[in-house]
Design a binder for these strands. Structure first.
Length: 559
RNA sequence: GCCCACGUAGCUCAGUAGGAUAGAGCAGCCGCCUCCUAAGCGGCAGGUCGCAGGUUCGAUUCCUGCCGUGGGUACCA
């Protein structure tokens, strides 16, 4: 419908004297439903060019428009010069029929084409996933779902590095714990953790070691397996054991959130295949890399940064930035049309360098989109839950899921825009009541299922082809109008890489449905009307279920 | 210091390719279950859209400065 109006409007404008060729009319859904279903401010925008009063331009445009009355029932000029359009009821009945026909695929479009890569989670296997990783995982997974629904062929990828300093410290932490388990009376030392907190650790434990209980568990498994020999294990063996155990933990956690990756990309493969060197030498060829003080630098000052950035340390070891660049080059070489990175706010300074490098190397950096999300604060009893940067007193993602369920965790991570600091109210999240927004949506779905069951119980058989034109009650019309927007909402969320539009829209659907439910009885009406209303209820269930599917949240049949 | 976000109702947050009286949830107040799920519905109240300038017919939205919060400013990731 929007496309139809847009085309008609453009055609009329093109035939109007004085309208610039490149003029783009805007069509929007007005905030106030009494203003109609779609509106354009074209007359206001043209006022300056045409040197005429906006209202007069609007009147003339309306006069010139020749619209199909089966689709647009009413056109009016209002306010300072807005043109408002109202849909015809026949059109709405058709739209509803289409929705029912599309069913589980309603909302899927083929607007977008090509292959998309979404990179997310990307936590190194040094410990259990935290709440922050949870936000990352759920955002990435949902963006991937949205792109899938928008028509892309989507790959979900997890990038990790098992070679760097972090992993070395991990191995040392495990080894120290092995030694201590075999020799419980061995020497110890005291480490200061965070603000004044101290912890007693084995003397061989690294200063910045990982202190979680899971390290001790891994060590114990090694001791059980190797006995006394566990103390003599190489760091490589310790790392191997730790990495396997931790990756298994991570994958289990992701599975609980219904997050499934298509691929795990190991940074190491970039070294093995010579891609790090190749990328560096190409950058060097472009003259954006130089050597100084024994290190290799990237001229980020040429891209507006204050200082240049080290790519290879004087030790000969690259910083993480170089593999990051090489990784993105690899993504381009694999032929993705769209690449999305989901990063925490603490990475905000790194991606401009990656984009600059891609630009230098001749890649279209616009094909890369970086979604930055802000940190999560857990709130309990009105107070923020303290989380030290040390893993020792971090709330893990598993603990969060244990406490609030995966559905609720996903919804809370998705209901706010990524770019805002998320306050996660644990008390509200756990509450199984009307205060909890996720239950509101699920309840609406369960309620529809209940009505459909009830209809069956009382032996009501709906018409195979109900007369949808009977749905003329205000609540019915409003509901149909809300439902038919679903594909556009999905498209909007996919384009903006903004999952939070979806929960907001679904709430509108649930509100429109409960209003309808409240005002229009279904069972007990005459058969034709009951059939039509049952069809409308089924259509609502489809939209809620499809929307919740995109969000990765269950749609229960009963509650 | 510099860079990047953010600052909207008591609280948590939407909204802004500049547009018609700034929205929602929660909290507060008032109503509503002989009837398909009251985990619900209707209504009331609540705002100098951080502050000050600028651009514009029109600014919560764009620009500048200031204030506040968070993040980044390592040859750590």
């Amino acid at each position: 419908m929007k496309d139809y109006l847009d085309a008609e409007l453009r055609a009329t404008l093109a035939a109007t004297d004085g309208v610039p060729d490149d003029f783009e009319p805007m069509l929007e859904k007005p905030n106030d439903p009494s203003h109609g279903d779609l509106a354009t401010n074209a007359a206001l925008q043209l006022a300056r060019h045409l040197r005429k009063a906006p209202r007069q331009i609007a009147e003339e445009l309306v006069e010139a428009l020749d619209l199909d009355p089966a689709r647009i029932a009413e056109v009016s000029v209002a306010g300072p010069g807005f043109i408002n359009f109202r849909f015809a009821e026949e059109f709405l009945a058709d739209a509803l029929a289409e929705l029912l026909e599309a069913s589980r695929s309603f909302g899927r479009t083929a607007d977008a084409q090509g292959r998309a890569l979404v990179e997310y989670v990307s936590a190194n296997p040094t410990g259990p996933l935290t709440v922050g990783h949870g936000r990352n995982a759920v955002l990435g997974d949902t963006i991937a779902n949205l792109l899938d629904w928008a028509g892309y062929d989507v790959t979900r990828e997890y990038y990790f590095n098992d070679a760097g300093r972090q992993m070395r410290v991990l191995a040392e932490s495990v080894k120290a714990r092995c030694e201590a388990l075999l020799n419980p009376d061995g020497p110890t030392k005291t480490l200061t953790v965070g603000e004044g907190e101290t912890v007693e650790v084995p003397a061989s434990f690294p200063e910045d070691g990982y202190q979680g209980q899971y390290i001790v568990d891994i060590a114990r498994a090694l001791v059980d397996e190797h006995g006394e020999a566990a103390a003599e294990l190489s760091l490589d063996a310790c790392q191997q054991a730790a990495q396997e155990t931790i990756f298994a933990m991570i994958e289990r956690t992701l599975e609980r959130l219904d997050v499934e990756m298509d691929a795990f990309f190991n940074e190491r493969s970039l070294y093995d295949e010579g891609k790090i060197e190749a990328t560096l030498s190409k950058l060097r060829d472009e003259g954006t890399v130089y050597d100084a003080d024994g290190a290799t630098w990237f001229k980020t000052t040429a891209f507006g940064k204050e200082a240049d950035t080290v790519l290879v340390k004087s030790t000969g070891e690259p910083t993480y930035r170089l593999p990051d660049i090489a990784y993105h080059v690899d993504k381009f070489e694999r032929g993705f049309d769209v690449m999305i990175d989901v990063f925490g706010a603490d990475h905000i300074a790194t991606y401009p360098d990656i984009l600059s490098a891609l630009d230098v190397l001749g890649f279209e950096k616009d094909r890369v989109d970086v979604v930055i999300y802000q940190f999560v604060t857990l709130v309990r009893g009105g107070e923020p839950v303290k989380m030290s940067t040390r893993m020792a007193n971090y709330v893990t993602l598993d603990e969060l899921i244990d406490e609030v369920t995966a559905d609720v965790a996903r919804f809370f991570f998705l209901m706010r825009s990524a770019n805002t600091h998320l306050e996660f109210d644990l008390d509200l999240a756990k509450e199984a009541s009307d205060k909890n927004p996720v239950f509101y949506l699920q309840y609406a779905h369960a309620r529809i299922c209940s009505v459909l069951r009830k209809a069956e119980e009382v032996g009501f058989t709906a018409d195979a082809a109900p007369d949808l034109g009977l749905l003329t009650h205000d609540a019915e019309v409003a509901l149909i109008k809300t439902l038919r927007r679903f594909p556009a909402e999905i498209r909007k969320a996919a384009q903006a890489r903004a999952p939070h539009y979806v929960p907001q829209y679904l709430r509108e659907v649930a509100v429109a449905f409960t209003t309808f439910y409240d005002q229009c009885r279904i069972i007990g009406q005459d058969e034709a009307l009951a059939s039509a209303r049952l069809a409308l209820a089924r259509a609502t269930r489809i939209v809620l279920a499809n929307g919740l599917t995109v969000l990765g949240i269950s749609a229960p049949d009963r509650m």
